[in-house]
Simulated scan of single mutants.
Amino acid sequence: MTPSTADSLTLYGQAFPSRVLLGTSRYPSLQSLSDSIDAARPGMVTVALRRQSETGEAGFFDVLKRHGVALLPNTAGCQSVDEVLTTAHMAREVFETPWIKLELIGDDYTLQPDPIGLVEAAAKLIRDGFKVLPYCTEDLVIGRRLLDAGCEALMPWGAPIGTGKGVTNPYGLRTLRERLPDVPLIVDAGLGVPSHACQVMEWGFDGVLLNTAVSQATFPPQMARAFALGVEAGRTAFLAGPMAERDSAQASTPVVGMPFWHQDGGAA
């Protein structure tokens, strides 16, 4: 694989200019949100129809329109398939887009997705013409079921939402990547610092979705920019082809021309 400036995130046949997706909730101000979008230059920004309707902050949608970034409505807060379907259809009408980030929470403490309901909801939304990006765990079998239901990409978590822990199950997440090599995988939830994003991009993931890690930082715009750089660095490293890890040391300095007693470890 040769690094290329044309390398872009492609979902459902549509190319996006950035591998960063940015959430829009819990920023200290609209100006902070606007500056963070400028700093990260995300491919998409997510918006929760239900939560935004409840807060109703004046000017919120004006900010999003001004930036001209593609919108990704989500079904945050839904705890049943019926809630998901109702929210998704309302979002499609309000935002005039078939894109939907599917969230169906099965546990209030961990905010872990409901794997059974998730597959059912995904299948119904796909039949209704949505482009579904399902928020799921790193479970390979559930991932395959979502793909069988018609999803063309997955959004596995790195850790529970809002924890900032980074990847808590590297084996599971890397196994998902290895077993689904041709499926776009975007790590969503649990990342806390740019090095977390860089790491998953080095593993070959296709993008990251961020919200709390940026909005709850001391200086959100600076953190947004740092994450964007981390994602770019990780992707570039993946395309460059990292060296193989070794269990023993290997000198990087060539031995040609060295005195023979240095080469074999002997004494003069």
Rank of each mutant, 00 (worst) to 15 (best):
C78D: 00
V81N: 02
A70S: 14
R19T: 01
G68W: 08
V94Q: 07
C78P: 00
G117T: 11
R92C: 12
G56T: 06
L22M: 13
S29R: 13
A70W: 12
P73H: 09
L30V: 05
G43K: 05
L125K: 04
D128N: 13
L49C: 03
P115H: 03
E93W: 11
D38N: 09
G106L: 00
T55K: 12
E83R: 00
A39W: 04
A76T: 13
V20P: 08
P115Y: 06
L22A: 04
S18F: 04
I105N: 00
T87Y: 14
V47W: 09
E96C: 10
G117H: 07
R92V: 03
R26D: 11
R66T: 14
L33S: 14
I100H: 10
S18A: 10
G59V: 09
F130C: 01
T46R: 01
L102E: 02
G43N: 05
A123W: 11
A40F: 11
C136Q: 14
P28C: 03
L125P: 00
C78W: 02
D82W: 08
T137N: 07
G117V: 04
E57Q: 15
A70F: 08
T24A: 07
T46G: 09
P98N: 10
V132Y: 02
S32N: 04
L118T: 00
D108W: 01
G117Y: 05
H67G: 02
D114G: 00
E96D: 15
F130Q: 00
S18K: 05
G43P: 04
K131E: 09
R19P: 00
L49R: 13
S25I: 12
A48H: 04
Q31R: 15
L72A: 10
S25Q: 14
M44T: 04
R50A: 15
L30H: 10
K101W: 06
L102Y: 13
